[in-house]
Simulated assay, not measured.
Amino acid sequence: MEQLALEGKIKGKTYGKQKIYFADQAQFAEVSEADLKAIDSRISDLSTQVQAISQGCRQLDAELKELNSSMTTEEMISEIQELKEGCSGYREQLEKIKSTTNHVTPEQKEMVYKERHLYVKEWKTRKRLAADMMGSILEGYPKTKKQFLEEVGVETDEDCKVTMPST
C-alpha cells in the first residue's frame, strides 16, 4: 500500500498511529450527469434481471426438492409388488377365518359376558370388604397404611397397575 501511495496511484493519510489509504479521485475522468443516469438505469435493469433469475432459481429449487422427495419408477414398482404380496397374505388369512367352522355362537358369547359381569361384581365386593377390614385395622395401627401393607404383604390393584373393568 505504501508503494502504491509513493507511485501516486492511491493516497494515504496518517491519523495518529494509523494510516488510511484510499483511491485518488483525480485520476478518474469526469462523468457527466447523463452518463450517471445511464449507469443508474443499467443498474436498475440488471437488478430487475437478478430478481427475475433469483425467482426462477427458487422455483426450480422447489421443483427439484419435490422431485427428489418423490419415488422413482423402480421404487414404485417394488412398493406396489410388496403391497400386492401383503394384500394376498391378508386374503389368505381372511379365507382361513371364513372357512373355519368353530365360530362362537351368540349363546356362548352371552354366557361369557354374564360370567365376566359376575366376576367383576365379585371383585368389587371383595375389594370393598378388604378395604373395610384394613380401615378397621388401621384405626388403631400406629404406622401408615403403606407400611401396614408392606408388613402384611398385601399387593393392591394399584401396585400391580390393574384397573377394574366397568360392569
Score class of each variant (00 low, 15 high):
residue 113 Y to T: 09
residue 143 K to S: 13
residue 70 S to D: 12
residue 21 Y to C: 01
residue 45 D to T: 15
residue 164 M to C: 14
residue 135 G to S: 13
residue 74 E to R: 12
residue 139 E to M: 04
residue 26 A to N: 07
residue 33 E to N: 11
residue 35 D to V: 12
residue 119 Y to K: 12
residue 155 E to H: 06
residue 98 K to P: 01
residue 79 E to Q: 14
residue 44 S to L: 11
residue 33 E to F: 09
residue 145 K to P: 00
residue 39 I to M: 12
residue 120 V to M: 05
residue 161 K to F: 04
residue 49 Q to V: 08
residue 166 S to Y: 04
residue 121 K to P: 01
residue 159 D to Y: 05
residue 80 I to M: 06
residue 8 G to T: 00
residue 86 G to R: 13
residue 11 K to M: 07
residue 50 V to A: 09
residue 125 T to W: 05
residue 45 D to F: 09
residue 88 S to N: 12
residue 53 I to C: 02
residue 69 S to K: 13
residue 49 Q to C: 01
residue 93 Q to I: 03
residue 108 Q to T: 10
residue 61 D to A: 14
residue 16 G to F: 04
residue 43 I to P: 02
residue 3 Q to G: 02
residue 124 K to M: 09
residue 6 L to H: 07
residue 128 R to L: 06
residue 20 I to W: 09
residue 95 E to D: 14
residue 38 A to H: 03
residue 119 Y to V: 03
residue 8 G to H: 02
residue 154 V to K: 01
residue 142 P to Q: 01
residue 147 Q to E: 14
residue 123 W to M: 08
residue 95 E to T: 15
residue 24 D to S: 04
residue 27 Q to G: 05
residue 143 K to Q: 08
residue 72 T to C: 07
residue 54 S to A: 14
residue 135 G to A: 10
residue 165 P to E: 05
residue 4 L to R: 07
residue 159 D to S: 03
residue 160 C to T: 00
residue 41 S to Y: 11
residue 117 H to A: 15
residue 70 S to W: 10
residue 146 K to L: 01
residue 3 Q to A: 15
residue 57 C to L: 15
residue 31 V to P: 02
residue 163 T to Y: 02
residue 79 E to A: 15
residue 162 V to C: 01
residue 24 D to W: 07
residue 166 S to E: 15
residue 166 S to A: 15
residue 128 R to D: 08
residue 115 E to S: 08
residue 9 K to E: 07
residue 99 S to C: 04
residue 93 Q to A: 11
residue 122 E to T: 06
residue 76 M to F: 03
residue 48 T to F: 11
residue 73 T to D: 15
residue 126 R to E: 02
residue 77 I to Q: 13
residue 130 A to Y: 01
residue 118 L to R: 14
residue 29 A to N: 08
residue 75 E to P: 03
residue 11 K to Q: 08
residue 25 Q to A: 14
residue 108 Q to D: 11
residue 26 A to T: 13
residue 1 M to R: 08
residue 23 A to N: 10
residue 66 E to V: 11
residue 91 R to F: 12
residue 90 Y to T: 07
residue 37 K to I: 14
residue 67 L to R: 14
residue 131 A to T: 06
residue 45 D to Q: 15
residue 34 A to L: 11
residue 13 K to Q: 09
residue 26 A to Q: 08
residue 104 V to A: 11
residue 51 Q to V: 08
residue 5 A to S: 06
residue 119 Y to L: 15
residue 63 E to S: 13
residue 137 I to A: 00
residue 155 E to V: 06
residue 91 R to M: 04
residue 146 K to I: 04
residue 128 R to S: 06
residue 3 Q to N: 03
residue 161 K to E: 05
residue 66 E to D: 14
residue 157 D to K: 00
residue 104 V to Y: 05
residue 7 E to N: 06
residue 143 K to T: 02
residue 102 N to P: 00
residue 59 Q to N: 14
residue 90 Y to H: 10
residue 96 K to E: 13
residue 127 K to G: 04
residue 49 Q to G: 05
residue 160 C to L: 15
residue 130 A to T: 10
residue 35 D to N: 09
residue 57 C to F: 12
